[in-house]
Every structure is written in C-alpha cells, then in structure tokens.
Amino acid sequence: MRFVVCVKQVPDTTEVEVDPETGTIIREGVPSVLNAFDEFALNQAVDIKEKMEENIEIIAISMGPPQAKEALNKCLAIGADKAVLLTDKVFAGADTWATSLTLARAIKKLGKIDLVFVGQEASDGNTAQVGPEVAAHLGIPQLTFVTSIESIEDQNIICKKETDEGFIKIESPLPSLIACMPTPGFVPKIPNIREIMKAKRKPYEEWDHKKLGGDSSEYGLEGSESVVIKTYSPPPKGKGIKVEDPPEKAVNKLMEYFEKEGIL
C-alpha cells in the first residue's frame, strides 16, 4: 500500500506576536514548525504502518519555500519513507484552491495511492479547505475530522470521526482522503538521533511547476480564486471577571453581571 501525507511548515504559534500597528503577524525571527494537525496525520500513518503486516510506503509531501525541507526532514525522521517538496517561485501566494490543485497534481504524479492523509487544518490559516479540495481534485472520497483509524481491510477504511454530537464510525472505499483531527491526549512521536540520521539517507526530491505540468498561470497567486484584501487582528478583549465563589453564589454573581452588561 502507498500513503501520501500532506504537510505544511507553519510559524510556531506559541512564539507568534502581532504587530499592534499593522495588525499583521510578525514573522521575523519566529521559528517554523511542522503544523501540529499534519504531525498528527503523519503519526496516524506511521502507526498503521507499524501495526499492519502489509508493506506500506509513506510519502510526505509539502508545498513551500526551500526551507520547508526542514519540515519534511522531520517527517522522514518520524517515519515517512520518501519526501517531495513542491517548491517554485510560481507557487508563491497560492490560496487554498491553487494549493490543493498543486498538491493534487503532485499526488497524481506519484502513481497509485491508497490513502491521502492531511491535517484537518493548518495553525496559521485555519481554513480547513485544502484537504477537501485535494480530494475533489483527485476525485476521491474525503473523511474529515478523523480522530483515529479503526481498520483497513478489503480495500475499505473504517475511521472514527468527530461530529458536533460526539463521534461516529465511518467507512469508505480506498483510495480516500482523510483529514485528521488531533485528540486532546495526543502525544507526538519524538524522532531520536538515530532516526534523524537515517532520514538523511531517505529519498528526497524537489519538484517545480514544470514537473507537475500545466500552465504556470494555474499556480500560485495567479492561479488563486480568492484575494486577500486585508488582514487584521480582532480588537483586544476587555478585561474579564473572575468568580471564585461556591457554585450557587457564583451563579448569582454571574447573572447579576450578565444583566448589568446587557448580555441577557
């Protein structure tokens, strides 16, 4: 079997600060990390590979600037067998449509794939659109908010999926795309030094738009259907109140507060 895991390198959100004047994220000096949702997806793929008797190849793929290789190196250390970085100035400024088109074309180029793993969303954009759009471009079913994979048998996958009401089990034929949603207790695998060194020797390729085919106008900013007019931070929240009384007293206090503030 062959799995593809789509990953993105994002700014470390624990280190991000917003410029109070421009309202934009200060990226200078902020370290980049593997998107946590994608890391969960990769961990899922590696777990299956370790559990299943069948031989599984995991290919990690990312679109980004040359430094996104770092994120792919980490994927190789965690357990991916091969990595492909889609990097080209032409890809710059892509919205979710152009990004998903680029990823889908690369996945097609990889040949027969049984499962495509993506993170539910990326911690920098939080659109949650790229995964489903990749599935649409590939013409395969998509399973979103997947918290775990129950089984892969007879060309079918059964997953546990989070819904507004709780969880459901859902079955889909292969190939499918699954968008993975980290569970609260998720502990990502830490690659050890030996795995990091082994990763150095695993196949790694960089592909540009020529390799993927199509016209350059289909990629990046030019190929994007949406335009960002302005980015801004929401206005800072006012100072909250803290109620530390026993429940009955606390409820009364809160009700008084809500009434006073016109919330209720």
Partner: peptide, 12 residues
C-alpha cells in the same frame, strides 16, 4: 538541518 532536529527532539 539534522542538528536542528537533534535540538528539537531533545528539547521535546
């Protein structure tokens, strides 16, 4: 890149 990953793994 490997040395950066060493550092990341040890810190984690």
């Amino acid at each position: 890149e490997e040395q950066r990953l060493f550092r990341e793994s040890i810190l984690d």
